[in-house]
């Protein structure tokens, strides 16, 4: 067992892990963050996406021990102190149905808007191309993001 320390949602956390423990499992089972989900366990679906040092990664393909000293952000860390403009837009546009892909999509969309505050539709599709959604057909997700970028332009 190794004791590692890293920043999770702006808070320094300490946790004991074996080298073979996956970051997704450690976040969910040891650190109280249930928002990243397991969809495929191979990095194909994006449901497990979290921000590692500001960049979205597949937490199912990261060993927890790798993030020592790094910064991890999950949806819980985005939803506080209050929901972002992007999240409010997702609610207003009824962008999600079953909601299981939502944490991963919001991570990817948050990363996109940090990098590129005014993406066009093609750029939005590209940024979300690794997040599988079986319910919505993606269009209401695009619409919400486009609305946010439009409002920001004003």
């Amino acid at each position: 067992m190794a004791k590692i320390k890293f920043t999770l949602n702006d808070e320094i956390r300490t946790v004991e892990v074996e080298p073979n423990e996956i970051l997704l499992d450690v976040l969910r089972d040891k650190l109280g963050m249930k928002s990243p989900k397991c969809g495929c366990d191979r990095g194909d679906c994006g449901a497990c996406a979290v921000l590692l040092n500001g960049k979205s990664v597949r937490s199912c393909l990261v060993f927890a021990i790798e993030v020592e000293g790094q910064e991890v952000r999950t949806l819980e860390g985005i939803s506080q102190p209050k929901l972002t403009q992007l999240q409010e837009a997702f609610i207003e546009f009824n962008s999600f149905q079953c909601g299981y892909c939502a944490p991963g999509v919001i991570i990817s969309a948050t990363e996109l808007l940090e990098k590129n505050p005014h993406p066009n539709l093609e750029e939005i599709k590209e940024a979300l191309s690794g997040n599988l959604c079986r319910c919505t057909g993606y269009t209401p997700i695009f619409d919400a993001i486009l609305d946010v970028t439009k409002r920001r332009k004003k």
Binding site: G46, S56, R58, V62, S108, G130
Partner: peptide, 9 residues
């Protein structure tokens, strides 16, 4: 290659 989440790593 794949998508953003994979390319970041």
């Amino acid at each position: 290659v794949a998508s953003v989440g994979i390319r970041n790593r």
